[in-house]
Design a protein around this nucleic acid. Structure first.
Lengths: 219, 219
DNA sequence: TTGTTCTCGATATAAAATTCTCGATTTAAC
DNA sequence: GTTAAATCGAGAATTTTATATCGAGAACAA
């Protein structure tokens, strides 16, 4: 019987998933330099991580290394990409063409990481019909219907907090399976919907607290 | 002897810090609705979190609740804000006026969360001298010196990965204490510098993997 | 060939975070 | 008053995550 990573009984730890892109990026630079192989010890030194932790993370992708050598760089990159599903590109809709929404629309890099934002939606009449980063902004009212017809499974919410729940409801109505939510609220969605929150303020809180503690210690 | 939260011997768990803004935002909406008090059970139901976990998180801020009642909403908001240092506003420099950098420059909300981006820097001649979101873009070469003269302690990096390390070095040279890093690389900085990484791709990885697993399960 | 060094991978241990349990306390209803 | 319901706060138990240990395998130098 063939063993694939989807046979894994236990879900992948989220900390592991969050570290994989770090490895991926580092490996890409190694690849660009022409490095053939790399060990966890080397990576650990560069990335300030425990080598054992890296080894366990990488093992999750199903790849195996060789004693004394480590892992083949290109294989490792491929393993991470296929593990994360970055090979088959997902089409996505984005709702909320403000500062952040426009920024995400312009992130060409996403195309290399499994994500293609194919359309943007907003309720602001001034924005509808205009092109932002080369993508046309359409009325939010058309989103659900279009999502269903185009079989789009992924939605990105970059609206203000107060509109995020409505947008999420529309996405669910349109048959969207997963939501990348940049609004700082907890969305209420059916059980089966995958929601990934990306809250800038969470990150800012960690930073603020540390800096405050530091500055206070210095008086 | 007065006990303040800075007397805490043990560092605050990062997961706790990351959840505090979630509570804060929820409490703000309660406040707007005129709610006087709230219990952990109520919050837990709304935010899909364990009430005990919320209770422990809130206890970190030093606030105390009352049985049967819960916490006073406005007190709680104040406790979180002062705990995170969101009351005294930090001036910050931002380097890298691309899509994301420009978006952050336009985030007026930051002013209410202890952050004021006072200047932006870039190496692109086409951007230098221009106003972005009402803030003038200056040459990166002037950043370190200005940081020192203006006593700016916080730097935000929104450059492409390949320039992030150089920018970080400049920030450190300018006496900056803390860096909010949006570039997807691990910065190498002196021990005492606080670095908070905000990697969109980490978040995307979690989402990608879950969606891939889901779609695969459905064939 | 033989010994040395490096690294993987499995297992064990430790630390951190979450969840559960329960007594004490307060409010509000009876 | 007395009782019932709700909730806090402290501590225990569980789960998850991170780190340490160690044997075996592979490359390389002598």
């Amino acid at each position: 019987m063939m063993i694939t990573d989807s046979d894994q009984a236990r879900p992948i730890p989220e900390p592991t998933l969050r570290r994989l892109p770090t490895y991926h990026h580092f490996l890409k630079t190694l690849e660009a330099e022409g490095r053939e192989a790399v060990s966890c010890s080397t990576m650990g030194r560069e990335l300030n991580l425990d080598p054992t932790q890296i080894r366990k993370d990488l093992a999750m992708t199903g790849i195996t290394g060789r004693p004394k050598i480590g892992y083949v760089v290109t294989d490792l990159i491929g393993a991470i990409e296929s593990f994360l599903g970055w090979n088959d590109i997902q089409q996505a809709f984005l709702a909320g063409v403000g500062n952040l929404g426009a920024a995400l629309l312009g992130y060409q890099q996403f195309n290399r990481y499994g994500l293609d934002i194919v359309a943007a939606f907003d309720t602001d009449e001034a924005k509808i019909g205009r092109q932002v980063q080369g993508k046309e902004v359409m009325p939010l009212s058309k989103m659900a219907d279009l999502a269903r017809r185009m079989h789009v499974h992924l939605g990105i919410i970059t609206t203000p907090a107060e509109h995020a729940q409505y947008v999420a409801d529309q996405m669910v109505a349109g048959g969207i399976e997963a939501i990348w939510n940049f609004a700082p609220i907890v969305l209420s969605t059916p059980e089966h919907i995958i929601v990934q929150d990306e809250d800038l303020f969470s990150s800012l809180a960690v930073l603020s607290r540390r800096l405050r503690t530091r500055l206070q210690a210095m008086q």
